[in-house]
Design a protein around this nucleic acid. Structure first.
Lengths: 138, 138
DNA sequence: TTATCGGACGATAATACTTATCATCTTTAA
DNA sequence: TTAAAGATGATAAGTATTATCGTCCGATAA
């Protein structure tokens, strides 16, 4: 599996380092939209000398090189998307909780590949704003 | 028109002050997604003694009371939506430029009012990620 | 109109998050 | 194996935002 990560790095044109490997594995094991601090805390358990700056730098590197996808909206800090399925987000306007919802379940399948001004579509990202079940009761 | 703003404040349950009125009028005159600093710069021309903190506090107040809508995604700072038409956003994955696109033009009209886990839909906010015309050439 | 009181204001300190700097160490490629 | 390029850790600095607090303003009642 170290070989796997080495290959992944090669495929994405970045150097393979021990810190990056641990960071990648830790992030793979997390769900939802972890913050840099949360990732840092876990990486530190395996590499106590790791620096927060390294975590930030490599999260950005992973995002830029396409290994992970960024989803920073609605949080006060940078977040990375750990759900690799096609999905969107439900955002509660009251408690701000963010829940994933599958593309199919959302029942929204845009097809246009080119929009006004010649904008070339890569993908759609939908936020459904509303009230979660818990906040409806209150 | 001062009476208008007074009424608006009353309708939204907030007190009317000179600073708030100027802030509101300045923001009404801005397009796109101005940052607090940009708003502050303009307000300062009319009320030189205004504090940046007041601008922040009242932008939040306007958003919380429903006078304006927040759209903070993709920017490094809080942004307010000045386009009152129903619309979504096209985000260039290369240059990060954000352009509005009308609801109709997007060709996406979701209808579901209730989603999984009983989530009650208020509205949909769609970000189209892709390449703007300029970045496609380069 | 004036007195009163709660909320709003301005100045600025503090905080949260993120990035920059730089000396040292590790990877990569020859 | 070795030199060059790049990565790391420690920490300073930067950016955006929020908290604090003494003073002042605006809404209400008299």
């Amino acid at each position: 599996m170290q070989a796997d990560f080495r290959q992944l790095c090669a495929d994405h044109g970045i150097a393979m380092t021990h810190q990056r490997q641990v960071l990648y594995e830790v992030m793979q094991g997390m769900e939802g939209h972890p913050s840099p601090e949360e990732v840092y805390a876990l990486v530190k358990k395996k590499v106590p000398a790791v620096s927060l700056a390294t975590v930030y730098k490599n999260i950005h590197l992973f995002v830029e090189s396409g290994i992970f996808r960024k989803m920073s909206m609605h949080h006060g800090s940078v977040r990375v998307e750990m759900n690799s399925e096609d999905h969107h987000h439900m955002v509660c306007s009251k408690c701000k909780a963010i829940t994933d919802i599958g593309e199919k379940e959302l029942g929204l399948s845009p097809t246009q590949r080119r929009l006004s001004d010649g904008f070339l579509v890569e993908r759609y990202s939908v936020d459904v704003i509303g009230l979660c079940a818990k906040c409806q009761k209150a």
